[in-house]
Write a protein that binds this DNA or RNA. Structure first.
Length: 540
RNA sequence: GGCCCGUUGGUGAAGUGGUUGAACACACAUGCCUUUCACGCAUGCAUUCAUGGGUUCAAAUCCCGUACGGGUCACCA
């Protein structure tokens, strides 16, 4: 068969001179190039963020390039604003992108649907060299073939004797083309399934894979390439050195490997990332954006968990020894850690929200109050306008609240997200000083509170403050320490904890709060007196 | 069903033939500290690495079988 003639018949208006593109997209002078190549089908979720983050982290570590390429060759799955959504989400996470449809770059276009000419050119080149051919089989015919293969317990696919369009004569093809029969272009797969080749994946390690003998589709009937074909052409021309992608691609690696070899291109290195999993009852399954709210990025935004925390947690999932490094280098940037492919989980890490929250508490405990304050403003501006107005109005006061038990060697760890702040500290604002239903009052509560407010100066140090409380304890027959009380409980009306709890209740209407001494100090004497007065009135 | 991959405590995991008495972290429990809560500190929590066999002086680590789990078999990526 005259393949040149065949190529011209199929793609008359396309040049098969691929050297144009080889020249147009020259070698890069960096040793590491990775990419994130999503389909624009919606918002980014934890899984895609994970893969994208890994790519960017390794690119950064190797002073390489990380670019974004949109894989929109499936017209049916296109979603409105898909590209914008992806780019916005990546921006929110401060993932640094060197080239993208927005930023541009020398290797564009970065949207596959805009590269149609390129793919067709490479496809024509293959046809011309007898390595690809048109296939006129309909979906129904293919389904039937598959059914027959299944009933014969044979391997499925467009393989061996089943690849009937492989042997069409030029005349037969010409007739179909003249009649405008819809067709695809398939690879004439040169592999032998019974032969295996060794492949070293950066994460999975040494693999033995069968050669590909399936005549996979290269160009679909709409003229757009399949993932397999676009992957080879793009990653070759864009000079990607490291393909970092989900391990659902592992099984098609023989196809991709073969395509690179057919063209004589250098095969890039591959890192197949196992998915983030979730333990559901007793089964482990992939974290799903449909069933697991924590898979959705919006979930964290709504709670007010900072993106830094998510990145921190993802980093621990990428390399579990990261966590140890981080606790010793809490002031350093995540990217300074030496991430390694071979330390990644082969079967996929399990997502543990509890651990993420614990990490978040540690993260918040390292922040300066001013920084948290800025985060609070940003958060409540969107999620609670009323509270936003309040903290905007009382900036200094709010920062003082945030500084309670923060300015010491081991700060409190009670804040795990911005939404916690309101739950934890709303009572500090008079607007939210709410009564609670049931309050247990101790003996002489009114006298104790009155004595307390009489002696409270507002600027005593903690030691003096405590000693004043102890005096009150003594006066009303409360034990001034627990040991005393426990030795002889019958002698006392109660103990110092009861007295402090009473004060805490009067001030906050809560049984739990940070150090009451510090709270009083932040509130100021005037507010404290008012609250105590109103508490006593309310109790009577 | 074919092919590929995996299986270490309540959880995430470290571990690649010999100081591993199986790190570390989360969770849990108890105790200490303490005005509550949180923090912090201390202690406890796998005589054993899915399972059966083999190789070896030595196996969680290497080999084979079995069970279970995951991925994939599209003109979707």
């Amino acid at each position: 068969m005259d393949y040149k003639k065949l190529a011209d018949l199929l793609l008359p208006n396309v040049s098969s001179d691929i050297s144009i593109y080889e020249k147009k997209y020259p070698e890069r002078n960096v040793s590491f190039v990775s990419r994130f190549a999503p389909s624009p089908t919606g918002f980014i979720h934890m899984g895609s963020l994970y893969t994208a983050y890994i790519s960017s982290l390794f690119a950064k570590k190797n002073n390489g390039v990380f670019y974004l390429r949109i894989e929109d060759t499936d017209q049916k799955r296109k979603v409105e604003n898909g590209i914008e959504n992806i780019i916005n989400d990546l921006e929110k996470f401060n993932i640094n992108i060197d080239e993208s449809p927005i930023i541009g770059g020398l290797y564009g276009p970065y949207i596959q649907s805009e590269r149609k000419e390129i793919y067709l050119s490479y496809a024509k080149y293959l046809v011309e060299n007898g390595m690809a051919y048109p296939c006129f089989c309909t979906k129904e015919e293919l389904d039937e073939v598959r059914k027959e293969q299944e009933s014969l317990k044979e391997r499925t696919g467009y393989i061996c004797k089943w690849a009937k369009c492989r042997n069409l004569t030029f005349e037969e093809i010409k007739k179909n083309i003249d009649n405008e029969v819809s067709y695809v272009i398939r690879l004439k797969a040169p592999g032998n399934f019974d032969k295996k080749f060794e492949f070293k994946d950066l994460i999975k390690g040494k693999l033995m894979l069968p050669e590909n003998d399936n005549d996979i589709v290269l160009i679909k009937s709409d003229g757009l390439p399949t993932y397999h074909f676009a992957h080879i052409v793009d990653d070759h021309l864009m000079h990607t050195t490291h393909i970092i992608r989900g391990d659902e691609w592992l099984s098609s690696l023989p196809v991709h490997y073969q395509l690179f070899r057919v063209f004589g291109f250098k095969v890039p290195k591959y890192a197949h990332v196992a998915p983030i999993n979730k333990k559901d009852n007793n089964t482990i399954r992939k974290l799903s954006k449909r069933y697991d709210p924590e898979c959705n990025i919006a979930y964290y935004f709504e709670k007010g968990i900072p993106v830094e925390v998510i990145k921190l947690y993802l980093a621990t999932l990428i390399n579990s020894n990261f966590e140890n490094w981080y606790t010793n280098n809490i002031d350093k940037d995540i990217s300074e850690f030496n991430f390694e492919f071979n330390k990644m989980s082969v079967s996929g890490p399990i997502f543990d929200l509890e651990k993420l929250i614990s990490l978040s508490k540690t993260y918040f405990s390292t922040l300066k109050a001013e920084k948290i304050y800025d985060g609070l403003l940003e958060y409540y501006k969107i999620y609670n306008k009323e509270f936003y107005d309040l903290i905007s109005k009382y900036k200094e006061y709010t920062i003082n609240i945030l500084n309670i038990e923060r300015l010491k060697k081991r700060p409190r760890k009670d804040l795990s997200c911005y939404s916690d702040f309101m739950n934890l500290f709303s009572y500090m604002y008079d607007e939210y000083y709410d009564k609670i239903e049931k309050v247990n009052l101790i003996k002489d509560y009114d006298k104790i509170l009155n004595d307390f407010i009489d002696t409270y100066s507002g600027d005593d140090d903690e030691e003096l403050w405590t000693s004043k409380i102890k005096e009150i304890c003594f006066k009303y027959n409360y034990a001034s320490n627990m040991k005393e009380y426990n030795d002889n409980p019958a002698l006392y009306n109660g103990h110092i904890t009861d007295v402090c709890t009473l004060i805490r209740l009067a001030i906050t209407y809560r049984y739990e709060s940070p150090n009451i001494y510090e709270i009083l100090k932040v509130m100021g004497k005037e507010r404290v007196s008012k609250r105590i007065d109103s508490f006593i009135k309310e109790a009577q």
